[in-house]
Design a protein around this nucleic acid. Structure first.
Lengths: 138, 138
DNA sequence: TTTATTAGTTAGTATAAACTAACTATATTT
DNA sequence: AAATATAGTTAGTTTATACTAACTAATAAA
């Protein structure tokens, strides 16, 4: 059990460092952790309005409004007015905003590559099977 | 290969969520990500002085000084004047400051428990072996 | 011993990140 | 039609996070 906890700790560090390095690679160092979280959440929610985004982030609407305005200013986001409800507008990621997803994909690929490099085909299949079991529901 | 990247992505999410939930459990939600990073780095460096901490965090000394003063104010850190060099002081974590490490330990244990719950003894040994191989040097 | 370097601090500035209170305009309920 | 609720905004405030420039005190080099 002791060795398992140690491995989890090392794995956690690997993920953290790998994400940091991917962030550099994609020239996203200027973004704070909070800002990354905004863009990730907008991507996850699929063009939310400000109310939905604020609820998901557990922040107030004025707080989110200020942040969103800065993203629009910096060309990471744009708004589209809703047809159904003219009070509301949906947030969309620009190409620049989508960089964050690409960065995540890259970072996951890099770790997958490390796995592939260290293990042979058979070992890799075993590992995938076991991790799938760990990550399965319930 | 596709499935491996998917698993890495899920694993990454598991780690992220697990850390968030551990942070709540330890009443550390009031700390920002940046502040967590300070305390983690101080722990890692083992009682650094401000110059060493600033270098490691890649920030200027005045920036770090301001942050450290707030931590001292809030009883997360204390300073001990150096005997060898009377200009310098070493930073120490208080019991409250050490909560961050305990939180990390807890979060790693929780993930280790999930692994143990989903796999039998034999599978667990195989997984530990494979992950060790992945995490080995070079 | 004078000079240069180093550790830490102080002061001033800028931006990010959060809040509450109060507002406008549109939609919904009564 | 009038009252209520909702989406978004504006204004004002606080604290965190970063910087540069300039300083004091102690140490190391010339």
């Amino acid at each position: 059990m002791e060795s398992l906890v140690t491995i989890v700790s090392k794995l956690s560090n690997l993920f953290g460092q790998s994400e940091e390095s991917a962030k550099e690679q994609f020239h996203l160092i200027s973004l704070t952790h909070t800002q990354m979280h905004y863009l990730e959440t907008i991507n996850l929610l699929h063009n939310p309005n400000i109310t939905e985004l604020a609820r998901s982030l557990k922040l107030t609407k004025p707080t989110v409004k200020v942040a969103v305005d800065k993203f629009i200013e910096k060309d990471f986001l744009y708004k589209i007015q809703s047809d159904e409800d003219r009070r509301s507008a949906h947030l969309h990621l620009t190409e620049k905003g989508k960089l964050i997803n690409q960065m995540h994909d890259y970072f996951h690929k890099r770790i997958a590559e490390l796995f592939s490099r260290k293990l042979n085909k058979e070992e890799l299949e075993t590992l995938v099977g076991l991790l799938n079991k760990v990550l399965s529901e319930k």
